[in-house]
Amino acid sequence: MTDPVLFTQGLCKSFGALRVTNNLDLRIEAGARHALIGPNGAGKSTLVNLLTGVLKPSSGRVWLNGEDITRLPAAERVWKGLSRTFQVSTIFPRLTAFEAVVLAVCRRERLLRNPSRLLSGCKPQAEEAWDFLGRFGLTGVADRQMGELAYGQQRLTEIVLALAARPKVLLLDEPAAGVPAQDSEALFSAIENLPRDVAVLFIEHDMELVFRFAEKITVLVAGESFREGVPAEIASDPDVRRVYLGDEDDE
């Protein structure tokens, strides 16, 4: 068994008396396609916030690539190779998609430390950004402001932005949420074609997406890891059906 690229040890988070994450040990292997599912209120969003550094855990640790990142601020976790997307489309309304991706590439290459470099002198970065957008079929709208893009295109651009940091772990927070049906196929194929060396952890409600891409599934219930296994095991597990899949129709 290889070392996991991202893992947590005894991760706990309480808000007052309410324990939202309870002693969680999560292991994400390098290059994994790992889905995190669970009923509403299971603590998925809190876990995302703990992993990305938006929240500080009450106790426990987060390790990325063999390094303890528990105390690192959110931005520095990105430097270490943990990128994310957001549940609700989170964009720069008045930047063009191209500018945003160029910025992501320039940040990765530490050009933000060099204020004397003009954007027009960032040829390799611009070409790389263009290439990224091309892979997701977005060059046609590259010079449009992100606020004007269709929702599905915004979601795709967000994935491009996360990838442009060349992460080791990519955290997709409900990537299919709110995407209209006619755009979802483009999104699904984009997720399918994510580079294999990037470990993908996705938090998702859409079971079609989960069972299509996941190679491993963790079921989160009440802040604890309830079951973990390959999709076939999870799908046939009667307890999982009871706590999660059974009430899926209600949502």
Binding site: T52, P73, A74, A75, E76, V78, W79, S83, R84, T85, F86, T90, I91, F92, P93, R94, L95, A100, L103, A104, R107, R108, L112, L161, A162, A165
Partner: peptide, 12 residues
Amino acid sequence: ENERRAVALGIS
């Protein structure tokens, strides 16, 4: 434009 998104790009 969006501080949360900027942080997610690794901008401190």
